[in-house]
Design a protein around this nucleic acid. Structure first.
Lengths: 300, 300
DNA sequence: GCAGGGGCATAACCACAGGCTATGACCTCA
DNA sequence: TGAGGTCATAGCCTGTGGTTATGCCCCTGC
């Protein structure tokens, strides 16, 4: 059973403060950075240490530095804080922002797994910029770009309406995943195209970008799914529970692979698809849209 | 300048609650899972929606489901919650635990970037298990294993004292990184061994595992560092600020690459090193130690 | 057709976490 | 020896988020 986050770790403020102390070298300066008083910061950090049962800071009359364990905790905390930051950026972009300057539409995979990080990077280039994000399927994204509802679109499907110019910004590997106990989990030889085509899989509904890409990679000769679920998360749970194999974006399963709840099966078929940025043919990308495109490209 | 996390996002409790609602299908059940009352949960979620300015839930007389934007937010939130969870697991392992059952020692890179996820996975197999973690350099790890202070060790250095058995659990690519504006940042041809050897780099102190591995990969013919810093974080900041190039574990820079504050430079030299699990020669791994080893191996 | 139960919302109340200001103790350096 | 950093302590107050009790709504089954 999944447990809720223990309260000490649910509130990242204290950890964020710790990171500021590490960066700035003193509790007082960290306090100012967080616009709270020095005593407040001091108390929070003491309380954090007390609750963790660890000594994180080395306090000296001319500043504070991290202890060895403090540095380790800070590094772990940084990942968490960064993830929360990406969440914040994503939400900011999602908010209906009539007053915004850059409008982006992105297909599911891009919106979920790539855009938040890109937007965090974009924000350092354009601190005041507000971004609108529309998450939709690839066809809708293309339509939104054509209608000039958005300045830039990201699609994952192979097809593209005329009037749009596309540039590959990333390559998304599709991964065959199973539960650790599954017969395929110990294979060293890749599963062949024939096997994949013949095996009923846990799959998204027809029309999903991931499913289309997979079907296309196998030349359309796939069997009916074992189970048809409407969300990637549902699929991951089903597979982890032992329902069978699934083909998912490798971006969607990194966490599960790291946690060991899913394992990848090597595949003899190159399962790839290109994630592309799209904008109206003939248009020149300018300003934030251009920068976002550049940031996205840096990951190739 | 790095900004502190906005308060709404610093506290992940509400997001965690949202994930429970998604999983369990109703606000009331989610409340029970978090051991709070149903009105409390209801209020928190309303407040979350109000603060984000988004409608996350579809409330019906027989349960609540996520809206489309809710699902997107939930997916982003999941990464943040998972990271916080890894932080919690890491800290739990770090706490001095005389009463613990599994003792692990790990070198810096492993302890920072890999172990938390492994421990999260291990915990699902052994819910009650308490783990002690000792983070040290590879030599100390080996010593701790030999002295039977710990049940299992993870090292990154190439050398190993006699009496220890080692198995590769992961391969860590070293990456050449520079700031986005750096002359190397636009290179398509890899930098050669000669160039790398001739270029003064931002580097860790002599004796660091990463530095040793790099020197060994170049056959020892490297020049004096441009800048010698004692922590990976410091190096990353220095490089991002434009100080020069550095060679770091690819694990250490994923966040920065995603954020675009650092970029990798292709390298003509294969910069790899093996991360190995070690235990006393002749011993058979048993129980949790064996499971942790298995989990670690799954990532190869 | 109506009772019952599950689901969410509202209301009234309470506790305490965490903020603030003011001040003190300590170290270092000119 | 005083000035200017550092962090800690003390006393006070506010607001968030918890609780229980209750109401409304909708579906289901007798």
């Amino acid at each position: 059973m999944v447990m809720p986050l223990p309260p000490v770790f649910a509130d990242l403020t204290a950890f964020d403060l710790l990171l500021s102390v590490a960066r700035l070298g003193s509790v007082g300066r960290a306090a100012t950075a967080h616009t709270i008083s020095q005593p407040a910061a001091s108390a929070r950090l003491r309380e954090l240490e007390r609750r963790l049962g660890l000594t994180l800071l080395h306090r000296t009359p001319r500043g504070s530095t991290l202890t060895a364990t403090g540095a380790l905790v800070a590094d772990w905390a940084r990942t968490a804080v960064d993830a929360a930051d990406a969440l914040a950026t994503g939400v900011a972009a999602l908010r209906t922002t009539h007053e915004s300057r850059l409008a982006v539409a992105a297909s599911q995979t891009v919106a979920e797994y790539l855009l938040p990080a890109w937007l965090v990077a974009l924000r350092t280039a354009h601190p005041g910029l507000s971004v609108t994000l529309r998450a939709a399927n690839s066809a809708d994204v293309a339509a939104a770009v054509l209608a000039a509802d958005v300045n830039l679109g990201f699609v994952e499907g192979p097809d593209l309406p005329t009037g749009l110019h596309a540039e590959v910004v990333a390559t998304d590997r599709l991964a065959v995943v199973v539960a650790p106990g599954h017969p395929w989990s110990r294979r060293r030889r890749g599963v062949t195209a024939e096997e994949l085509a013949a095996t009923p899989l846990v799959s998204r509904e027809a029309g999903s970008g991931t499913r289309r890409a997979f079907e296309q990679a196998l030349g359309g000769r796939t069997t009916a799914p074992l189970l048809e679920l409407s969300s990637t998360t549902a699929i991951k749970h089903a597979v982890a529970a032992g329902s069978g194999a699934a083909v998912l974006s490798s971006l969607a399963v990194t966490a599960e692979l790291a946690a060991g709840t899913l394992v990848t099966v090597p595949s003899a078929v190159p399962l790839q698809r290109r994630l592309r940025a799209v904008w109206p043919t003939g248009d020149q990308l300018i300003g934030p849209a251009r920068d976002l495109y550049t940031i996205a490209r840096r990951h190739r």
